[in-house]
Amino acid sequence: MSTVIDELGAKLKGYEGRAAAVAGTGKDPVNEPMIRHWCEAMGDTNPAYAGPDAVAPPTMLQAWTMGGLSGHAGRTGAYDELFDLLDEAGCTSVVATDCEQEYLRPLRPGDEVTFDAVIESVSDRKTTKLGTGYFVTTRMDVRVGQDLVGTHRFRILKYAPAHRKPKASGARRPRPVVNRDNAGFWEGVERHQLLIQRCTNCGTLRHPWLPGCNTCGGPDWDTVEASGDGTVYSYVVMHHPPFPAFTQSDHAADAAGPYAVGLIELAEGVRIVSNVVGVPYDKVRVGLPVRLEFRRYDDDEDDPLVLPVFRVQEGREGGVG
């Protein structure tokens, strides 16, 4: 049993029962234009909400109490403090989860609304799909003059957003499929070594990694570390479909644009498919000298990726202009 004491949670509980708003007043009296705008937005054509005997849609109750862009009047220090504590703890986001309203009499144009609210409860710390935080429930009494016209219980989750793995959707670079035949290659990459397989029977180098030698069929092998020098043997430029994960890290292209896929011939003679970096996709040319480097992709903090890429050697870009 874990007995983690949630100090923040205990502090937040201290706000239960305290006033959230005292003698708040609606910014506008109940009025026909706001009713009409509401009905337009909701697609509500109920004739009860128009004409000389119009009432406001009951579900507008909370709207009459909203602070709008200029903020809330009548909010208490306690409510602000509670929110500040949550903000400081990283619970900066808000989402409403529950709304329970009771309507005691209809509101009509001209009614001037006042309201009082109390912080009814603060939950224990909860982890949801959105993130971890606290549910805060307030109960509001809405009055016109002395008459209670409605009650409004409102629950929000104030939370620290869960870390979304891909920073932008689709921008996570696909991970290699590692199996027993190629595991040694990827282990090398992690140590920033580009390992070429060598048949111990006939000495032929091979890439990509395979269980046996294509030349003599020998199953035994060792590895040679590539020197890192190479040239662009061939390339293609991918225009479609756009693939943000492959363009983002290469050059100035923020948007998913075309990218070049290079076939690099290593100094040792084998070829490898990789990215050519240091030049825009349309400046890649056959024969460009390139140099191996290892690039780390932090597009997923739980699963960092290191890949061998090839940088065009200084002053050797092709296709000037």
Binding site: M42, D44, A48, T59, Q62, C99
Partner: peptide, 14 residues
């Protein structure tokens, strides 16, 4: 949530 509330109200009164 206020829009959802409004739509639920409309659904019933419709």
């Amino acid at each position: 949530i206020l829009t959802t509330n409004g739509l639920v109200g409309r659904y019933i009164t419709d």
